[in-house]
Design a protein around this nucleic acid. Structure first.
Lengths: 233, 233
DNA sequence: CGTGCCATTGACCATTATCAAACGACGTGG
DNA sequence: CCACGTCGTTTGATAATGGTCAATGGCACG
């Protein structure tokens, strides 16, 4: 159950803009706002979705475990739903999700989401938009995997991270190398070599900080493409 | 403009079930049902979506061109929409689409789709379901790329193709080897070697026909997983 | 009976994974 | 304060996998 101050905070989320007030109240009156420390698994691959999760604050990762190895599917920044598709289609989760930092997560019972989705057009529209966005993101990732080597993926990852912040001459990796490797789609060892290799293309490595000395040089090497690397197109 | 017999055919599509009759009529009165021969590019990556495409009959492929090479993203069987996400989010196509056999395609003006989507809950629900399905498919493909080698992807492709038909001891590749390679995510040359390699795991190659002599053996090698290879989970 | 198209094969190189060892930062306990 | 773990990272050696280039083989079609 949400406290009234929490309710107010949640009601103003862009995710819920345009939804009729009573409908939203109906949706949220069974919702929970929970705090989690870093490293907690919120969703297990193969399980059936009981709640829609919305990351309000913090950082999370979507990942899959194959043959004892973990592979990163995507990183989740606030404010976003995660694995909405499983809830909508009432099918088992294809991936697991864990927090990477202290996070607060809004949990809405799955059945209620589906009910609302059947009744409120505005909500259905929001859901479809989120799904379209998620779909496009995964297609971009897929294109990156099919057409690029690990170094190129890394170089482009650095560039898009750098473009997130305003003045972008350094990127700080928000987790350990192994995790970054799993999201780039390679091994720890290889990532190390790849980072070393980028040293010859305008980049300096300072522990967890990647300093971009020569962005032009890095871009020449990475050859970023709008239809793969631009997060909002 | 649809002829009345075409209209009747289209109205009965599972895609449109549950949608109010007037709403559907409104959606379809500006629609076109077109025939295309094999090999026609219907959608160009980077272009802005003018129509929602629905494959009524035939076969199509979604692909992307990178550095002069084509990579297969997915195959489209009837009856399915393709690249619905671009229409919904009103963003440029991330991929191109071409017919692989003679096909008939229903074209609905994009703006009308978005209008309907804003008005009719049932339609919004159908759209969201399609998007959720597309998203899950691409996540499955992504998992396959991250955790499997090309031979394993090939072996699993054969198995899922075989499971489509009822009595499944042979699979016929519906296009040339190069195209199959681009959808498996490898080169023509490598695909050749990979097919040869599968010979030791219960499979015989007869031109375009892949005969499965020993399914158990192939499965042992491929290690299919429900959350990657089962098309409807 | 060529000619072109596709598929296969071989040789070679690039990329990536794997296994093993060493390194360095950090904190704990002697 | 130093020795000694641990943990994450780097480095090296080697093997597996995949891509590229070139040559060959088969087959259909004119």
């Amino acid at each position: 159950m949400l406290r009234s101050d929490q309710l107010k905070q949640v009601t103003n989320l862009p995710l819920f803009s345009g939804i009729a007030e009573e409908a939203l109240a109906d949706l949220l009156d069974a919702a929970l706002l929970q705090q989690f420390p870093a490293g907690v698994v919120l969703i297990y691959e193969g399980h059936h979705p009981d709640f829609l999760h919305i990351l309000i604050d913090g950082l999370a990762e979507v990942f899959t475990e194959q043959d004892g190895e973990e592979w990163g599917i995507s990183l989740v920044d606030p404010v976003t739903t995660f694995i909405l598709a499983a809830v909508v289609s009432d099918q088992p989760y294809l991936n697991s999700v864990r927090t990477l930092s202290d996070s607060s997560v809004l949990l809405i019972p799955a059945q209620r989401v589906r009910d609302m989705f059947d009744r409120d057009v505005a909500f259905a529209r929001v859901v479809a938009r989120e799904l379209a966005f998620a779909y496009r993101s995964s297609i971009k990732k897929l294109k990156g995997y099919m057409a690029r080597s690990a170094v190129e993926r890394l170089a482009n990852w650095i560039l898009t991270e750098a473009n997130k912040g305003p003045a972008a001459e350094a990127v700080v990796i928000p987790f350990d190398r192994g995790k970054l490797a799993s999201h780039i789609g390679t091994t720890r060892e290889n990532l190390s070599r790849n980072l070393a290799q980028l040293t010859e293309h305008g980049v300096r490595i300072r522990g967890r900080e990647i300093v971009i000395d020569n962005k032009k040089s890095l871009e020449t090497f990475a050859r970023p493409q709008r239809l793969i690397d631009d997060p909002d197109s």
